[in-house]
């Protein structure tokens, strides 16, 4: 397929946010403030959500320190060490809507206010709290 100069320029433009998400440049990654919730965050519940196929289904794409789940995906980085690489606010922003960080991402947006949300605000806070405990 032939790409016009314009198309290539457009592609380069889109590639920029992806580069800006490398851990070394983590200052450039947006942070999200805690969502309003009805109870304190529960990391143990967050871990369950990550592993369960019907709730977080994170392991469809990610691998990580979850020996009880046999099948891990290889479409995304391992979740091991997430809490060492990213701040709590950056993890939350990633869960709420990864396209804000990388427009071409395949990671689903887990929180929406318009009715079609995958996880509730409480669940987002639970998963965020759990991921901050994953340290190298």
């Amino acid at each position: 397929m032939r790409l016009s100069a314009g198309a290539i320029g457009f592609a380069l433009l889109l590639a920029l946010p992806a580069a800006a998400q490398a851990p070394m440049a983590s200052g450039a990654v947006p942070e999200a403030a805690p969502l309003p919730v009805s109870r304190p965050a529960d990391p143990a519940s967050g871990r369950k959500i990550v592993v369960e196929r019907r709730r977080g289904f994170c392991l469809l794409c990610h691998s990580g320190p979850f020996p009880e789940e046999r099948f891990h995906g290889d479409l995304a980085p391992s979740l091991a060490g997430t809490g060492s690489r990213w701040t709590e606010g950056q993890i939350r922003a990633r869960l709420i809507g990864s396209t804000a960080i990388n427009p071409e991402t395949i990671m689903p947006p887990y929180f929406r206010k318009d009715g079609g949300t995958i996880l509730t605000a409480e669940e987002i806070e639970d998963v965020t709290a759990f991921l901050t405990t994953l340290r190298d």
């Binding site: 196929r53 289904f57 469809l60 099948f71 995906g73 396209t99 395949i106 689903p108 995958i118």
Partner: peptide
């Protein structure tokens, strides 16, 4: 859909990879 994925993202860009098992 809620997962916000296109056919192309799975079948052009990530074929051969493992989605879960």
């Amino acid at each position: 859909g809620q997962l916000n994925l296109s056919c192309a993202q799975c079948h052009d860009d990530h074929w051969g990879r493992s989605l879960g098992g």
